[in-house]
C-alpha cells in the first residue's frame, strides 16, 4: 500500500433549510487531514445533513465546502460513505457489493479481485465473499460497508451513524474494529453519531451541534491516538460527561419545543 491521501476539508458558513425548517445555521468547521472529526448532537440537529453537504451529495442553501490536499495515486474515488442502513445491494454477494464500487474505475478485473480480497481480509470477511447480504447479521453487513469504503482508498471517509442500527453488543464489538481500521488507514474521516462512547473512542475533534437549527455549540479535542484509548481512561470519561451535559441540555430543550409545536 502506497502513501495515503492527505486531504482536509473546510466548511464555511453552511446554512440549509429543509422544507419549512431551518436545519443548519451558519456552521463553520475545519476537518484536518488524517483526523477523525465526530459530529454529535440531539436528534434533528442536522448532523446527517451536514455530512451530505460535506461530501458533495447535497447543495447547501448558503456557505462553501472546500477541500485542500494531496490525492494518492491509488485513490479510486475521493469520497467513500458508510451508511447507517448498510446500503448493500441484496442481489449481489459480499464480493459483488464491494466490486460495485470498483467496476467503473480503471482497475482491471484481476486487480479488482486482489483489492476485494485485501479488504475482505482486513475486515475479517474472507470466508464470506460469496454470501448474500440476507444471510449476514447486521454487524457483518456493516463490515461489508466499511470494506467497500476502504476498497476505493478514499481521501475522505464519511460515516453516517454506522453503528446505530446494531444492537449494543455488536456495536461494542465493531467499535474496536472500526477504531483499528480507521487508525490503520489514516484517512480523513467525518463521523456522525449520537452515541458518546463512539465519539470519545474515535474522535480527534468532537463537534457538538445545538438543537435545530443546528449551530456549532462546542468543539472538544482528544489528541490521544485511537490505539491508546481505553474505556477505563478517566480523562476520556470526564470528556464524555462534559459532552453529555451539553447534549442533555439541548435534547431536553428540543423535546419541550417539539411539545409546544404539537400542542
Amino acid at each position: 500500500m502506497g502513501e495515503g491521501s492527505r486531504v482536509g476539508l473546510a466548511l464555511t458558513g453552511i446554512s440549509h433549510r429543509y422544507r419549512a425548517l431551518q436545519v443548519l445555521e451558519n456552521v463553520s468547521l475545519t476537518v484536518a487531514p488524517g483526523e477523525v472529526t465526530v459530529l454529535i448532537g440531539p436528534s434533528g440537529c442536522g448532523k446527517s445533513t451536514l455530512l451530505s453537504i460535506a461530501g458533495g451529495l447535497l447543495k447547501p442553501d448558503a456557505g462553501r465546502v472546500e477541500w485542500e490536499g494531496v490525492l494518492a495515486p491509488d485513490c479510486l474515488n475521493p469520497f467513500a460513505t458508510v451508511f447507517q442502513d448498510f446500503a448493500l445491494l441484496p442481489w449481489r454477494s459480499v464480493a459483488g457489493n464491494i466490486g460495485l464500487a470498483l467496476e467503473h474505475t480503471e482497475l482491471t478485473k484481476p486487480k479488482r479481485a486482489v483489492r476485494i480480497a485485501e479488504v475482505l481480509e482486513l475486515t475479517g470477511l474472507a470466508d464470506f465473499a460469496r454470501a448474500w447480504p440476507r444471510q449476514l447479521s447486521g454487524g457483518m453487513r456493516q463490515r461489508v460497508g466499511i470494506a467497500r469504503a476502504l476498497a476505493v482508498r478514499p481521501a475522505i471517509m464519511l460515516m453516517d451513524e454506522p453503528l446505530s442500527a446494531l444492537d449494543a453488543q455488536t456495536r461494542a464489538l465493531l467499535l474496536d474494529e472500526f477504531a483499528a481500521l480507521i487508525a490503520r488507514a489514516g484517512t480523513t474521516t467525518l463521523y456522525v453519531t449520537h452515541n458518546l462512547a463512539e465519539a470519545v473512542r474515535l474522535g480527534h475533534q468532537i463537534v457538538v451541534l445545538s438543537r435545530r437549527p443546528g449551530r456549532v455549540r462546542a468543539i472538544e479535542r482528544i489528541d490521544l491516538p485511537l490505539g491508546d484509548r481505553s474505556p477505563e481512561d478517566s480523562d476520556l470519561r470526564a470528556i464524555e460527561s462534559r459532552l453529555w451535559a451539553m447534549i442533555r441540555d439541548e435534547a431536553s430543550a428540543a423535546e419541550k419545543e417539539a411539545g409546544h409545536d404539537h400542542a
Binding site: L57, A87, L158
Partner: peptide, 8 residues
C-alpha cells in the same frame, strides 16, 4: 445515493 456517493 450509495451509487452516486461512490461515483457511479
Amino acid at each position: 445515493r450509495m451509487g452516486q456517493s461512490f461515483g457511479l
